[in-house]
Design a protein around this nucleic acid. Structure first.
Lengths: 219, 219
DNA sequence: AATTATTTTTAGACTAGTCTAAAATTTTTA
DNA sequence: TAAAAATTTTAGACTAGTCTAAAAATAATT
């Protein structure tokens, strides 16, 4: 129905609108898709003609409901495939993204739904991101950054901001994974780094760079 | 590395060369790919430039070893995915082809090999076709057509010639599946139809059209 | 408010893949 | 074996998506 390229544009615009509802600029889209602004303008016109987004020259874009649904469906497939790769094929959480970028474009509603069932209708993918439902609903997360936790606060590792392989591999090395029980011992005001206790008994010093890319929830 | 289109051309040429080692004509390729002869000529030139096949104007093509390996790898992925869809996601054997046509182009050696292991390194797909090995070897089949069996001969259903959904659904209806034990009772010389006994006790009359699309082996 | 800087869009060109229509070649047939 | 038929190739055009370079619009700065 829609090309890989169209789906990638819609997904990129959707993800940008998640964090910065305003300012979905041509340049921002070009940057995440690693393409040029001129190409983005061309594609935006095409998607606008197809009523997948609203476009005003020089003023940016917003997805229509139709466009949002396609984007969310693509995200759904991406996260289901990541879950499959991790849970069933034993890929590390740092290895699943690139393969899922290909698999997310496979076009078969029956396949997506059977895969969902096969995986036991998971609510989250291997990075802790919520998996949209069949009807396109997606849970609004109540997570916060580890660097924003209060001293003495006990939290559970529940997601990442940075999804890059190097960051995930770093977490592997220091043995922080989804579900890890963390207690914030101390915050260093000077450089933003934090001291944490990792259940049951590990002491860790985390740089601000690391702490601000870890999502947690209270327990 | 290679585009979907290139892989589809190589696969089509490979399959044609399996059954009719000669006569891999431009028109034959165009027919299986549902495209026009002019398009085939264009693509053949491109694949020839890339040393994936040998091409002499007006004389047809033959795959090089490099081209053959890409084709076989694509077939391998197709059949592994079909097996996954059937064994794990519970798709019928008549439903797996179209989805596997998409999945066969996913480009990740790690994925293919992990999928292979996850499935228990199957030797055949849901239609009885052999799955090529990692190194591109494929078992030469010793199957023959049910319509060529001798009266009184006891055989095992082991594959199909026609892979279309309607034919597979017809086999579903008459309860013939891979592994079915069949005894040829009688051959009708006039119309080529056959009388068979389907283990344990079903009597069936099969038209020649059906019998010549069922592959069997002796038991 | 005018100039400068930045962003966005347009214009025109390129590649991959496809098509139709016409030309070239091969095969068939009488 | 020459004419007719069929097949294959070429020529030129089209779409999707991309790019560079230049023009247009907006935003920032003095």
């Amino acid at each position: 129905m829609y090309s890989f390229t169209e789906e990638n544009y819609l997904k990129a615009i959707y993800k940008l609108s998640e964090r910065e509802p305003e300012s979905i600029t041509t340049n921002a889209i070009a940057e995440v898709l690693e393409t040029k602004a001129a190409s983005v303008t061309d594609m935006i016109k095409k998607l606008s003609d197809k009523k997948l987004l609203k476009y005003e020259k020089y003023r940016g874009v917003t997805l229509t409901e139709k466009g949002r649904l396609i984007a969310v469906e693509t995200v759904r497939k991406h996260r289901l495939w990541e879950t499959f790769l991790h849970e069933k094929l034993e890929f590390g959480w740092d290895e699943v993204h690139d393969i899922a970028e290909q698999l997310e474009h496979i076009n078969s509603e029956a396949l997506t739904n059977k895969l969902d069932d096969f995986l036991g209708n998971p609510s989250h993918d291997p990075h802790g991101d919520p998996i949209p439902t069949r009807s396109g609903e997606i849970k609004r997360s109540n997570l916060f950054l580890l660097c924003d936790a209060k001293p003495k606060q006990k939290v559970v590792m529940s997601g990442v901001v940075d999804h890059s392989a190097p960051f995930l591999q770093h977490l592997n090395k220091i043995a922080i994974a989804l579900g890890s029980q963390i207690e914030l011992l101390d915050k260093n005001e000077y450089d933003g780094s934090v001291e944490v206790k990792l259940f049951p008994s590990t002491h860790l010093h985390l740089s601000k760079e690391v702490a601000k890319n870890i999502l947690v929830k209270t327990r």
